[in-house]
Amino acid sequence: MSDSESTQTPAKRESGVTALARGLSILQCFDRPGAQLTVSEIARQVGLSQPTTWRLCSTLIDRGFLVKTSGGAALRVGAPAMTLGYAAIQGQDLPALARPYMEQLTQQMRTTTSLSLRNGVEILSVEQTIGSFVVPGQPVGWRASLASSSGGLAVLTVLPEDERRAVLEAIATRNPDAWPRRKERIERAIHQYEAHGFILFPDMFDGQYAAAAVPLIEGSGPDRRYWGLASSGLSATWTAEALEPVGKELVRIRSLLQPAASVLPAARA
């Protein structure tokens, strides 16, 4: 650290950290392919005044991370930002990208965190970080009905309507006796996701364990794949109230992973 840096007041150092955080928040607004946003649109998304937003955008423009569109009325992501993003995910898959965030969540909450992939009407466990509780009989490679696991229920909340209808019919046909209970659980999951951005079940597997989960969608179009990111613990410890912060953290992790997940197939091509 230089002398000038060491003599900065805490307020000045905090100002620099705040500006960096705000600049990164602005870049995160461009979270879909071809996004073009005006300064006023960015200001609304990040919750800052237009003058402050413009000053931050101006710096990002100077560095090439944002560029003006041909008409000059909006901004889009510049080559340096795209280069960083594509370089970071080139050759990687979703489990590799998700693993560090799963580890952080497990260390923070002591829950077991799992990433599972939809396969037809089933969910397949692909990655797992072990917390203070191990879900019995559910190692990596474990399969279950989409309606029987928190990750699978999370996937069902975002399936296109026609596809979800076909999946539900198949699940009902496979086990008619269990269908009424599963139907109620699926409806509850859809309602929770629409209301909160995550699902929360304190009574999975006959009340043995509790879990919160969010969906992730890899790619776009007909070839996209659906994943469930779930975090679980013993029901005796993890009540619905205790799990709510876990669900909110899963929403935050999803917001970080989803933009990369959307472009993974193209980045690997």
Rank of each mutant, 00 (worst) to 15 (best):
F65Y: 14
Q104G: 12
R110T: 13
R55L: 13
I89T: 08
T111N: 03
G64D: 07
W142D: 07
S116P: 01
T113F: 04
V67S: 08
E122M: 14
Q92D: 03
S116F: 00
V126N: 04
E103N: 03
L84E: 09
Y101F: 13
L117K: 09
G85M: 15
I123S: 12
L60V: 12
G34D: 10
E103L: 11
Q107P: 03
V77H: 00
I89G: 03
S49I: 11
A43Q: 12
L56Q: 06
A43K: 07
R63M: 10
P139M: 02
P33I: 01
S58V: 06
A98S: 01
L124G: 01
Q36F: 04
V39S: 09
Q45I: 15
G137A: 00
I42N: 07
A88M: 11
L48Q: 14
N119M: 06
V140M: 04
I130M: 05
T59L: 06
S49V: 14
T113C: 06
Y86L: 12
T83R: 14
A35E: 01
A87C: 09
K68P: 01
I123D: 13
R44P: 00
G71V: 06
S116R: 08
S132Y: 08
P139N: 05
R118Q: 10
A81N: 09
P136R: 11
G71A: 03
L105M: 14
I89N: 00
W142L: 10
R63V: 05
L66K: 00
L97P: 12
V121H: 09
G120I: 10
R44I: 14
P95I: 01
P80E: 06
I42R: 05
G71D: 07
C57S: 11
V39K: 07
A43N: 13
L75F: 10
L105I: 15
L117E: 01
T69P: 04
